[in-house]
């Protein structure tokens, strides 16, 4: 059944390995969340723009990626990514073998998935800004970049924090799927440890607790941020 002695730190147990794996999960989640928000800013911009073509492309992207299982997107990028990059490199005249490392592939894959959700959150947040604010900014003579930095971004961020908190939870849980790329995060470490020790239950329960710990505390952090962002706001 559950073997506590297998979880000690040091050579006898898997405690330190699981600590590293947890840190790797956090690192991948943070990086892909960041990449996701970065993509989402442009995707939301495209979605809101009056240019039919760019809004069509953005809609296509969010619809397709959200309609396909996450595992399939990860497989596609993991197995198809290197081939695609090599084809692009060939077009530029480089004929060598390129292998992307597991971390990059994982961050890109989860980032692309996470971005679709962030796009919707940012789009909704932008639409909740009073249009009069932007008109007022134009009236006082701010330039487009200034309007974006000083008027739009702070308010979008404030409206988007609860939604981004949800996206973060989904992203964190999606990182369990990248164990198929061989990156040693919690899930991969669980498989390795249970194969060695022949005790899957112990390590799977540990993994469940680690994820529960991560989601709970990051949820608390987002609640705090949300409260903080609402200071003086009706």
């Amino acid at each position: 059944m559950f073997k506590f002695e297998k979880l000690v730190f040091g050579d006898l147990g898997w405690g330190d390995e699981f600590l590293y794996a947890t840190l790797m999960t956090i690192l991948v989640s943070v990086c892909s969340m960041g990449l996701g928000i970065f993509i989402a800013i442009f995707a939301a911009w495209a979605k809101l723009s009056l240019n039919r073509f760019s809004s069509f492309i953005s809609n296509l992207y969010t619809t397709v990626v959200r309609g396909v299982p996450e595992l399939l997107v990860i497989y596609l990028i993991f197995f198809g990514g290197s081939a695609a990059v090599m084809k692009i490199a060939k077009a530029f005249g480089y004929n060598g073998y390129i292998e992307l490392n597991a971390f990059t592939i994982s961050v890109v894959a989860i980032g692309i998935i996470s971005a679709t959700y962030s796009t919707e959150v940012l789009r909704a947040a932008y639409l909740s800004i009073n249009q009069g604010q932007i008109e007022a900014a134009k009236a006082v003579g701010l330039r487009k970049v200034q309007i974006f930095i000083k008027i739009i971004s702070p308010q979008v961020l404030r409206h988007a924090i609860p939604g981004l908190g949800n996206v973060w939870q989904v992203t964190l849980k999606d990182t369990s799927l990248i164990s198929v790329t061989g990156l040693v995060e919690i899930m991969r470490q669980t498989r390795i440890a249970s194969n060695v020790e022949h005790s899957p239950l112990t390590f799977l329960v540990t993994a469940a607790f680690l994820y529960l710990f991560l989601t709970t505390f990051s949820g608390k952090f987002f609640n705090y941020m949300e409260k903080k962002s609402r200071r003086g706001f009706v």
């Binding site: 849980k173 999606d174 899930m187």
Partner: peptide
């Protein structure tokens, strides 16, 4: 609070 993959594996 836990991923579905963990539940399936469990």
């Amino acid at each position: 609070g836990t991923p579905l993959l963990v539940q399936i594996y469990l």
